[in-house]
Simulated scan of single mutants.
Amino acid sequence: MRRVIGLQKFVHLHVHTEYSLLDGANRIKDLVKRTKELGMDSIAITDHGVMYGVVDFYKEAVNNGIKPILGCEIYTAKRSRFDKQGGWDADPGHMVLLAKNNTGYKNLMKIVSIGFTEGFYYKPRVDMEVLERYSEGLIATSACLSGDIPKAILNNNYEKAKELALRLNSIFGQDNFYLELQINGIEEQNIVNQQMIKLSRETGIPLVATNDAHYLRREDARAHEILLCIQTGKSINDEDRMMFSTDDFYVKSPEEMISLFGNIPEAISNTVRIADMCNVEMEFNKLHLPKFDVPDRKEPYEYLKSLCYQGFERIYGKEDRDEEKINRLEYELSVIKQMGYVDYFLIVGDFIRYAKEKGIMVGPEGVLLREAL
């Protein structure tokens, strides 16, 4: 049960684990344990640009009675994800995405993958076109000071911030996009918070409180500094090194967060509202294999069988109808079908066919499978 403080509860929705490489210092096991110690029963994972830790996080949370909220702090391209001009496109924005359901989880994986395969330029970036295409089932927040809306505010361009907020609200839908507030001792953050509250009042876009947790406890801030030094190749004695200017980026208790946002209670209650909306379920005892796109809408097993018989004829000749060989082929096919591996064999066979056609070397198993199919 969530710890009740008065009539309020709180859920961390912006959290970096060890999978935010050399940036997040929260080990998943320790993070889940700390969540329980603080009396919370939900917490999110929102690593920078990747989802490598999602499965470990999900399993650890569920095993400890914690509701896992699966997300990612993605990088947003200044222009198109295809624009990769030095000095202009190397500083992407940030945005937090949380999966509401399994459709949202699949869309989040797609967004993150596109960031790497199409938009990678220093960071895996996506653009508005990608967000518009894969917004279903997702909740978005405006992220930290590196978010596009906070950046516009700090550049004294409130109208641009408002225009962007309205566009994102349109993409994700009302109550699926939130303006993120943080209280962390940074003066620029205070400026952003004031404008975010104004923006919320003018547009009806709701507010949400987060703490952008990069480490577990306040006393871990020093260790996190060292982690950032390793990331940036700097010494702890370098004055110009990248560093957080306060030691507030830890997993704060519900009491701390509610006390900090006492004058903006809706930002706290919206964390619980969002957590209640996020319900992704993973299955681990079921085989998950992709479907092969069979030509001419043939049935996959019959297509595999026809390919195998074509391979049989290539190897043994059309005239060889040895009953023992044919019985063995039929037996092997029946095992593949029974085990549910028909599409798997078709996919791997297609990989190997393509590799052979392009002169790419394949292993001995690949050669055998290619000859068979």
Rank of each mutant, 00 (worst) to 15 (best):
F292D: 00
F292V: 07
H288I: 13
E299Y: 12
K234N: 02
P300W: 01
P254K: 15
C229H: 03
K286F: 11
S235P: 00
V251L: 14
D247E: 09
L289I: 15
S235K: 15
E225G: 07
I258E: 02
D293E: 09
L260G: 00
R273P: 01
N270H: 15
E299T: 04
L287P: 00
Q231N: 14
A221K: 01
I264E: 00
P265E: 03
I226S: 05
A275K: 15
I230W: 05
I268G: 00
A275E: 05
S235W: 05
L228F: 04
T246N: 01
N270A: 12
M242L: 08
D248T: 11
M257V: 03
T246M: 04
Y250C: 01
S253P: 04
S253F: 15
S245M: 14
K291Q: 08
C278H: 06
K252M: 14
D296E: 09
S245C: 06
A275M: 11
P300A: 02
M257L: 10
N270C: 13
K252W: 04
I230G: 01
A221S: 10
C229K: 10
E225W: 12
F284W: 07
V251R: 06
L227E: 02
K286T: 14
A223Q: 07
P265I: 14
G233E: 04
I258F: 10
N263Y: 12
V294P: 00
R273V: 04
N279W: 08
